[in-house]
């Protein structure tokens, strides 16, 4: 027998307990077909002489498909990521971990794009 590296607590637990919330400063456009465009102000600016040549856009759009829009709408700051994962799993008939992998990956991408923010719950002893 070899020494198993089985750890009881899943490394995904911290993410599940977190609360994801929409960027309140974002401008949201509802597109036909249930998709969304979320416009987030860009913090990075380009400086001259580059700005004389390249037109700077103050906002960057992230377009969410139907499932992405559903995830985004569920991230209301009240629900935990686990609640969002469960809701998506139920709606699309996925297993919990199938939904977890898809939803947490998607939430991470939206956080990087400034569309969502995350509040991580503190560990209670």
């Amino acid at each position: 027998m070899r020494n198993a590296q089985c750890q009881a607590k899943g490394p995904w637990m911290e993410m599940l307990r977190a609360h994801a919330m929409q960027n309140r400063a974002a401008r949201v456009e509802r597109d036909p077909g249930g998709t969304l465009s979320v416009w987030v102000e860009q913090t990075r600016r380009i400086r001259p002489p580059l700005s004389w040549i390249v037109r700077f856009r103050g906002e960057r759009a992230t377009r969410l498909d139907r499932i992405g829009s559903r995830v985004w709408s569920l991230c209301d700051g009240q629900r935990t990521v686990e609640d969002v994962v469960t809701a998506i799993a139920t709606q699309y008939r996925l297993t919990f971990h199938e939904s977890r992998v898809a939803v947490t990956g998607y939430i991470k991408t939206l956080i990087q794009r400034g569309v969502l923010a995350i509040e991580v719950a503190e560990e209670t002893v």
């Binding site: 198993a4 089985c6 899943g10 599940l16 971990h97």
Partner: peptide, 12 residues
């Protein structure tokens, strides 16, 4: 194998 909170069983 894991439930939603963590690993519950391992077979080697």
């Amino acid at each position: 194998f894991a439930d939603r909170y963590g690993f519950r069983f391992e077979m080697t």
